Structure formats: structure tokens, C-alpha cells
Simulated assay, not measured.
Amino acid sequence: MSPTTHTRPVTRRRPAVRPSWQAVPWVLGAGVVGVQIAFPLTGGGTPALTVLAVALFAAASVSHALLTRGPAAAVGLVVVAGGGGLLVEAVGLATGVPFGEYRYTGSLGAEVLGVPVVVPLAWTMMAYPSLVVGRRLAAALGRGRGAVTVLGAWALATWDVFLDPQMVEAGHWYWLEPWPTLPGVPGIPVSNFAGWLLVALLMIAALDRVVPAPHEGDDRLPLTLWCWTFLSSTMAAAVFFGRPSVALVGGVLMGLVGVPLLVVLRRHGART
């Protein structure tokens, strides 16, 4: 080789994720849908089905964050959403703040600090897609982090309008003073929704700083799971569980971000 010959510098790239591993979150997500479809067939879901659905959904969210954003993002998601969810639930049980006074019945299995382990998993499973929803809508509006926090928090908090009536009816927890209620959602105090919104604002703001944009792949899975949750929860409350007022209120509140999201996804697709 001539001494004047130059070679191009070698560029080191982040190792690509194997295609087989990329399928893992989708397989878990498919499991979520399958298990949730079984809920109406069992009168609202058994404790085992409830725990399984949450565990699969949480695993789908964490594995997707890991494969698309890296280990630090996955750890950050678990610490902020899982750890934060456990902390706020423990405080809520002890003080009644910020949700109101409630008690778990012990039907959801193992507990930490009086909180069923499945509960912080539920915060984790839904906080991640809600963050992605907030980012997608904020980007479509040309807005920054403040909009991500507000939109993502609304996407997370409004889900509980469906969740709480279902879990109370199934006997997993109960309220000591379930009034004043959120209009159209009997038996659930309005303080619960206010507390969820406050916690969601803090949680999404923190996640927006520790969970970056994807390095590999795209966000179709979390967007799909959030949209599935929105649409299936509305239909289940209206058709299968006999709660038309919950379907109306929850559908409208969750739809404030759900409908614009569906429009954005239809126009621009779900890829980042």
C-alpha cells in the first residue's frame, strides 16, 4: 500500500438488536390482548387473570423500553413508574393522600408496604405508553416538554376512570368514603381522579427526562397497546360490564387524547 494512501476511519455503531429479540414485546403485547379478551367471559376477570394481564403488559412495556432505548431507560422506567407507584400507594394507604381513603382486600396476592405487588406493575405498564402518547401528540402540535407532561398525564390518569370501578366491583379494593363521586362513575370518589392526575403529572415529567427517544426500532407497540386499552375499555364497560355511564365518561375523558392520537396516527403512521 502506498504511504500516501488514506483509509476511512472506522465508525463504531451501537450493536443492532437481533430480530428475534425485537419480537418479544410484541408477543407479550399479544398475550395482553388475549388475556383481556377473556375478562368479559369470566364476569370481569378472576384475580389470576388480572395479575397475568398486568404482568404481561408491564413486561411488554419494560422490554420495549430496553430494546428500543437501552438498559438505562428500562431501569429508569421501573424506578420512576414502579418505585414511584409503590411509594405513592403506600403513602395513600397510610394517610388517604392523594387519592382518598381506601383499603386493599388481599385478593391480588403478595404485598409490599401493604400494597399488592401487581399495583406498581400496573403503574409501570401504563405510564410508558402514556409517555409515548404524550410525546406523539406534543410533536404533532409542535409543542415541548410541558405539553408532553400534560398530555401524557391525561392519557395515564383517565385510564383509571375505567380501572377503578372494575377493580372495586371485583372486590380487590374498596373506598372508606366514596363521595363526592366523579359524575357518571358511582362509588369512586372524585379525589381519586384528582390524585391520579397529580401523580401522573409528576411521573410523566420524570419519565420524560429518564426515558429518551428510541435508539432502535419504533413506538408502534406502546401506541397500539394504549389505543387498545382506550377502545376496549370503552366497549367493555358499555357492552359487557353493564356500566354505560362509565363507558360514556371514561370514553369522553380518555378520548380527549385518544381521538386526536388516532387522527395523528392515521395521517402520519405510528413510526417515530
Rank of each mutant, 00 (worst) to 15 (best):
T5N: 01
T5G: 01
P9G: 04
V10C: 04
T11A: 13
R13M: 09
R13I: 11
R14C: 00
R14L: 14
A23M: 13
P25I: 03
W26L: 12
L28R: 07
A30V: 12
G34P: 10
V35K: 00
Q36L: 15
G45V: 07
T46W: 03
L52H: 00
A60R: 03
V62L: 15
A73Y: 10
V75E: 03
L77G: 07
V80R: 01
L87Y: 01
E89N: 09
G100M: 07
G106L: 11
S107C: 00
V118W: 09
V119T: 05
A122S: 15
P129T: 05
R136N: 01
R136T: 15
A139R: 14
A140D: 13
L141F: 11
G142A: 06
R143F: 03
R145L: 10
V148E: 14
V150F: 00
A153G: 15
A153S: 13
A153D: 09
V161D: 02
V161H: 01
F162P: 10
Q166R: 13
G171D: 12
H172F: 15
W173R: 06
E177V: 13
E177Y: 04
E177Q: 11
E177L: 05
P178D: 05
W179T: 14
G184F: 04
P186Q: 02
I188V: 15
L198A: 15
L198Y: 02
A200V: 08
L202T: 02
I204Y: 06
D208N: 06
V211W: 09
V211T: 10
P214M: 08
H215I: 08
E216N: 04
L223F: 10
W226G: 08
F230A: 13
V249M: 12
G251K: 04
G258P: 12
H268V: 06
G269I: 08
